[in-house]
Computed example of a mutant assay.
Amino acid sequence: MVRINQLKTLLLLALLSGLIVAAGYLLVGNETGLYYGLAFAAFSSFGSWYYSDQAALSAFKAQPTERADAPELYARIESLCDRADLPHPKLYIVPSESPNAFATGRDPEHAAIALTQGIIDLLSADELDAVIAHELTHVRNRDTLTQAVAGTLSGALTYLGRILTIGALYFPVARGIGRKANNPLAILFLLIIGPFSAGLLRMAISRTREYAADEGAAEITGNPLALVRALQKLEEMGQKVPIHGNPAFAPLFIVNPLSKKGLMKLFLTHPPTEDRIERLEEMAKGIEPSTKASKTMSPAV
């Protein structure tokens, strides 16, 4: 199942990159646009690979937390990392009462886990373990990089569409670039079809990775039902107290951090929480819940 999810993710990323290349071709109107598209996709991917961690942390005003400030939380994370055979990530606290969490970083050696103050206060010890294990699975599977690249490529395609709009409105010379620059179908692709398709692909990537991370959390903790209880609490409280920040980083969180009211329902990047819970409950039927870890680890702070 993990390998299938990885193949799906690679395919979806390849389709996203293909949309960028197609947009470059349509924007310029000849083969040179293909090279521009490839270069733009490569540059965007590299930038997201190198700077994704700081961008996400800054967007939600996450504060670095030292061991002296949260020794019990550090001990909890390190114990789970040892079980998952992962380097210990940096810990950040997001000063928000909205209960949520996310992981970021280009690889396990440069990873960070961010927990909101709300999730630390809300969840019990085993539930917090399950959430941290979920985020550690994202780190292990390098989903943090995948989501950053997907988000950047999706944003880049939207940006190309804006370039076309601005060029057509304010720079008449740009209207004549290439034979296909004024093609109505090309304009429709760049302004509507391309960005919309990129958004759908990005949501598909996010949903695939969330299911895999839930499975990884159950594997690390041996207690799928702890994550079930955590998701139930996060879903209920998260909508009462939505987090404020750049919606481009919404796929990083364990549950959708944005309001589900009105048109926001169209842009949800997470699978339905009910589906995730159903999958975890099915897993729990074949796993004896592990209470040993919860007893030996320090309580949540």
Rank of each mutant, 00 (worst) to 15 (best):
V301L: 00
I4W: 10
N223C: 08
P257N: 08
I205W: 03
L86Q: 06
P247Y: 09
P224K: 07
G151R: 00
I193M: 05
A111V: 06
K8S: 10
I119R: 02
L225R: 14
L153W: 02
K61M: 06
T152S: 13
R140H: 08
A148N: 05
N223L: 05
K233W: 08
D275Q: 13
Q239D: 07
A218I: 08
S154C: 13
S298M: 08
E135N: 11
R3S: 13
S17F: 04
L231W: 09
A42E: 05
L86E: 03
A284C: 10
V255F: 02
T158V: 08
I254P: 00
A284V: 10
P89R: 00
L26C: 06
V139H: 00
R106Y: 07
I166T: 15
A68P: 01
S206P: 04
T144E: 04
V131Q: 03
N223Y: 10
I193T: 12
E274C: 05
D214H: 10
Y35M: 14
T9M: 03
A103V: 05
T291G: 06
S294M: 07
V94P: 02
S45F: 03
D121I: 09
K233A: 13
P108V: 03
R209S: 03
I287T: 11
R207S: 11
P247M: 10
P87T: 13
L86T: 06
N183V: 08
G118H: 05
P108N: 11
Y25S: 02
L123R: 01
A14C: 10
K265Q: 15
A174S: 14
G216P: 06
A125C: 11
A204T: 08
P64A: 11
S17D: 01
R142C: 06
G161Q: 02
G176T: 09
D121P: 02
T116H: 04
L12T: 00
S294G: 13
L13Q: 11
I163T: 12
L201T: 01
A55L: 15
